[in-house]
Design a protein around this nucleic acid. Structure first.
Lengths: 210, 210
DNA sequence: GTTGTTAAATTAACAACGTTAAGTTAAAGT
DNA sequence: ACTTTAACTTAACGTTGTTAATTTAACAAC
């Protein structure tokens, strides 16, 4: 029973219905549970219908990624209200880590899984829009701190600083996600590790407070 | 034609033959090329023969992991000869990163992919053996530096320091492996990022050189 | 109001995958 | 010589992503 002539907004609704169903399976049972047939069953469609909206499973995953990137930027949005740039930088790193550890399956898809290189034009997100681009948020606040002259003089590239801070927090979070259960390493508490990383980054990059 | 009665050493040889074939496929064509049938074709056996040596694909992957952990520890072994502990710590981090970026597929399997929690008894590696346990290598050298009193006094847990250094280097390497192609971020040179991470770690953890 | 046309959805089917069951072969033990 | 058994293969099952073919229903034109 195909009631046809769907308006564009209806098509978009079905599209996000598919994405949401896939995300639910994802967060509930991990990536291996996301099969096209299972997604379709969730929304009461047949598996092949998904292909009317997504070229293949990979591009469906990329679409999920996009909504998650937006979710991350949105989760960090209020942090931008913090007036002091240094405080803001700290809060941003902490908020990022909170997101990573609260949604490990999404984080894995976003930052720990290789994808086909994504062209910025087919992404639904606007690069350099602080409401949608979490990397831009970080880059911006780090640059503000940079302009205030708070970093040691040997660091002259604020984007390099941002990328290093990102890598530090990402390293702690991704190791936690993958290896928390591993008994080979007697892991220290995750919040301790996160705080240590932040402390090291701060005292490594910034001038001494005088 | 099954010429039977294989001695134990012959069985082991076939086992490592399977592992090596799987690793080759892995490094050459990525994870998606590792199918049981493809591995079998490589070594001139039928796919089901693999199941005489490995319970399933997951445990074959774990076996590959084990040989790669050994390979990593072996690659870092000569670094332990460096007399000065601080130099050794630097070289260890750099050697680790070199391994990660030289064998990204293996690195992904080892440190970026969740596995069933592995019991130390079914692993073929000896924990705390510096020839086989790269984490022990790092832990040891960091502790040596710690005992020398080179770290800032607020850091009192040398294993926490080791885990943070690991996370920092891992963060740079894993982001590189997954996102190097991504045009969203205008990445700085990978060796620059690595060196920056090392610099930050050093000046963050260690006392000022006086 | 019948006739095309087309969008939306479905069912059927394919090839490939991991894995299991059943069967085959050749050497070793008695 | 006969049985047992390890080593291996072929057949087959269920599931996966995906494509082809088919059906259904709404609209447009005459």
């Amino acid at each position: 029973m195909p009631p046809k002539v769907k308006t564009e907004v209806e098509r978009q609704q079905l599209r996000t219905l598919i994405i949401d169903a896939a995300r639910e399976l994802f967060v509930a049972h991990g990536v291996e549970a996301v099969t096209m047939r299972e997604i379709a069953k969730r929304i009461g469609y047949s598996a092949t219908s998904i292909y009317l909206h997504f070229a293949d499973k990979e591009s469906l995953m990329r679409a999920i990624c996009d909504t998650d990137f937006l979710a991350l930027a949105t989760a960090l949005k209020n942090i931008l209200e913090i007036p002091d740039p240094v405080d803001r930088m700290h809060a941003l790193a902490e908020g990022y880590a909170r997101f990573a550890l609260a949604y490990p399956n999404h984080y894995r898809l976003m930052f720990m899984t290789p994808h086909q290189p994504r062209h910025p034009e087919d992404s639904s997100l606007q690069q350099n829009n602080p409401e949608q681009d979490a990397y831009f948020q970080l880059k911006t606040v780090v640059n503000e701190v940079f302009v205030l002259g708070k970093f040691k003089p040997e660091f002259t590239d604020s984007e390099l600083i941002a990328q290093t801070i990102w890598a530090g927090v990402h390293g702690v979070c991704s190791l936690e996600i993958v290896m928390a259960q591993d008994s080979w390493v007697s892991w220290r508490d995750i919040s301790t590790r996160l705080q240590t990383m932040q402390t090291v980054m701060v005292s490594g990059f910034m001038r001494e407070v005088t």
